[in-house]
Amino acid sequence: MPQRENVERKSTRPTQEAPEEQVAPNQAATERKAALDAEVDSMLDEIDDVLEVNAEDFVKSFVQKGGQ
């Protein structure tokens, strides 16, 4: 499928001009995972600052009436 090609091409960087440098699928997956993990890590550092101070109270007190 053309769509899938696009996804992989994007995540393994340009391959059209230098096909010999194409990264092996396993290595590509590992790299992609590492990049995602780094992204998440930086967000986790922020979450503690952003999250409501007393999580337990916050969650308990979020009581809604039913809607549509």
């Binding site: 969650v59 009581v63 809604q64 039913g66 809607g67």
Partner: peptide, 14 residues
Amino acid sequence: LYKNNTDNKGASYG
């Protein structure tokens, strides 16, 4: 305000 659909305590809104 929360753009979600439940309070996880039995209520849902759409």
